[in-house]
Design a protein around this nucleic acid. Structure first.
Lengths: 233, 233
DNA sequence: ATATTCATTATGTCTATACATATTAACCAT
DNA sequence: ATGGTTAATATGTATAGACATAATGAATAT
């Protein structure tokens, strides 16, 4: 009558999750060991192991050798933020993407940037300013600094037809990303590029990327305040 | 001479990652099958499987039955955003946390909220307005709506000493979260609470949470524009 | 009391094997 | 050509058994 196939790791995960959610196993509970659960579910220890390991990866459980598996405090502490390239972000909405280079300069890294990225005193960077349009409406103004010590090939690239983000993705491996979100006022500079009033709010995302501890690039991306970064999980 | 223990799944992961990064296996490459790699690394197929599966989970590889495993475009598409409670967020910086309830009202859900959370026409909500201080300086103004159909116990809670977020965490399980980040102007209302000028920018995070498809609560959290939400991966 | 040693225990990882399942490519009939 | 059937194939999942490793707590020595 029932569809009871043997329990797979998904079934086990689901059941454990339910028991955590309905407080059958409240906060801090140490769950039965893998062998015990394997007996209960009638499956192999490896199956229980995978279920519990994945729940631990997802932040639901905490596992320690010898100590056993415990229920963690807040089941949902983390959300994933998609970090698509602007192009992908725009094209995903069905709009037409257009890129335009505003300026390009090779220069010594300004002090604030050296401090921010822990650069050497005489580090050189390429500073780009770019615009990204969605259906010809201003979508994002991008201030981009690329560290030449880490990415020397940036010297030979004009960035007139390809955006720095798309170029870097195809050119450079990355190991770390740091994101900072904040709000600011448009001011005269951004206002002109984004076609909004200087006293209107703008939404900024700063993205630093690193390769094995060496700074690769810093991007400061500015959107009209009406822009919304949506994410789920 | 070499420390060559038998390759574990971590070693396999590392080696594959290196080959992806140094373009030994460029974008779109279909990697050798699991059996072939198992032979190369001198380990069992399950070991290769785990390594590749985890890399797929991390967004480096794409796996399809029969089609094989391919190298994905952007090695870092997702970042995790920590969603701590305000209290934890403030106390993590070493500052003293203070909470204060501004207002509390039980009312029918306004139209925009009903639409936003897909509520029934006659749904009732508790609307709270709260302030969170770090070292007695305004840190966050919180507009909070709690859906009474889903959380009836909110009726009996005054929220005068405990913030709605802390209360909900201890009270309710959650299954889904949606976050929206944006920028806005303070305006007279927020300005007074956050102690900033009305024409200054504010940073807003809207958080909807759900339990099995039923809306639990919506929080609109407003910070002074200088606030920075930092995240890494 | 304090430190050291050591057995115990739960998880961590690997192996070899088996069967399931999605997808493609080749084949065949129309 | 077109459409449907089928076999081959790579991954997906499960199994039992084995050994590794970290953490605990008890027993022991200082």
């Amino acid at each position: 009558m029932s569809t009871a196939r043997r329990a797979g790791y998904r079934d086990v995960k689901q059941t454990i999750l339910t028991r955590v959610r309905d407080k059958t196993w409240p906060l801090g509970t140490v769950l039965p060991g893998e062998v015990a659960l394997a007996a209960e579910f009638g499956c192999a220890r490896a199956t229980i192991n995978r279920a519990m390991r994945e729940l631990a990866d997802e932040g639901v459980l905490d596992r320690k050798r010898r100590a056993g598996t415990t229920v963690l405090a807040s089941p949902l502490r983390h959300a994933k933020v998609a970090v698509p390239s602007v192009r992908a972000e725009i094209e995903a909405t069905g709009a037409t993407y257009r890129y335009s280079l505003v300026s390009r300069a090779e220069q010594p890294a300004p002090d604030w940037l050296r401090a921010r990225l822990s650069l050497a005193p005489k580090a050189e960077v390429v500073h780009l300013r770019c615009m990204h349009y969605a259906d010809n409406a201003p979508y994002q103004f991008e201030d981009r600094w690329i560290v030449l010590d880490t990415v020397p090939t940036a010297l030979n690239e004009s960035f007139e037809t390809i955006g720095p983000n798309d170029w870097l993705i195809s050119e450079m491996p990355l190991t770390d990303i740091e994101l900072v979100f904040s709000a600011a006022l448009a001011g005269t500079d951004y206002a002109a590029f984004l076609d909004v009033a200087p006293e209107s709010p703008v939404f900024q995302v700063e993205r630093c990327t690193w390769l094995n501890g060496n700074a690769v690039t810093l991007a400061r991306m500015t959107h009209p305040g009406s822009h919304r970064l949506r994410t789920a999980l």
